[in-house]
């Protein structure tokens, strides 16, 4: 484990609590001698996926949208581990985080393979980094919400040929514990 990309989907960074926590995770990872790249999605110039499929059949592997997406794709695909970080909002990670996740289709190949009796898109790259979730709960978050989020990110890992290694919460885990765990993968 050498290089980590953190995708911070906080959409209210002015509230500071969540983004401050993520900043601490970043620092603790660095003190574990890891290379860390943090993207604060909400403050970047990013557009939503248009479903145009240029990245599949016009400019293979490249997204047609001219914005900051490329830096994120480049960092993600060349990392050893990804952290999806977001406060839960309406029972799920933020629209900002989903905005960039939708566009990860450019990292896959359109060709289809069968896995677990399901259709999936084939790999474009040899290796897709495993990922972990760091979430902040809402006032009304319950066990069912957490199960649903894990379920949906489990689907993401099937699609992206990788593994979800953890789902941690800012309420119950210390930044140094998470950093320590990651450094031992």
């Amino acid at each position: 484990m050498k290089k980590i990309t953190i995708l911070n989907g906080d959409i209210h960074p002015e509230k500071k609590i969540f983004s401050e926590y993520i900043h601490q995770v970043e620092e603790k990872l660095m003190s574990e001698k890891l290379e860390v790249h943090v993207f604060n999605i909400n403050s970047m110039n990013l557009f939503y996926c248009k479903g145009c499929w240029s990245c599949w059949w016009k400019t293979p592997g490249k997204c047609d949208i001219q914005d900051d997406g490329s830096q994120i794709f480049q960092s993600v695909i060349n990392s050893d581990f990804i952290i999806f970080a977001s406060p839960l909002i309406a029972g799920f990670t933020s629209s900002a985080l989903k905005k960039i996740t939708d566009r990860f289709v450019c990292l896959l190949h359109p060709y289809i393979q069968i896995k677990n009796g399901e259709n999936h898109h084939q790999k474009r790259y040899e290796k897709y980094p495993d990922f972990g979730l760091i979430l902040e709960q809402e006032a009304d978050t319950d066990e069912e919400d957490i199960e649903i989020v894990k379920n949906i990110y489990g689907r993401l890992s099937l699609n992206f040929h990788n593994n979800m290694r953890f789902c941690h919460f800012t309420e119950s885990n210390k930044p140094e514990e998470i950093a320590h765990e990651i450094s031992h993968y």
């Binding site: 996926c49 909002i89 309406a90 799920f92 933020s94 900002a96 989903k98 905005k99 996740t101």
Partner: peptide, 19 residues
């Protein structure tokens, strides 16, 4: 449409606005 076995980002943004 289903995006990454989930709702697309713009739909999630709409759900957030409903709060």
């Amino acid at each position: 449409p289903l995006y990454t076995d989930c709702k697309p980002g713009i739909v999630k943004e709409f759900f957030e606005s409903l709060l």
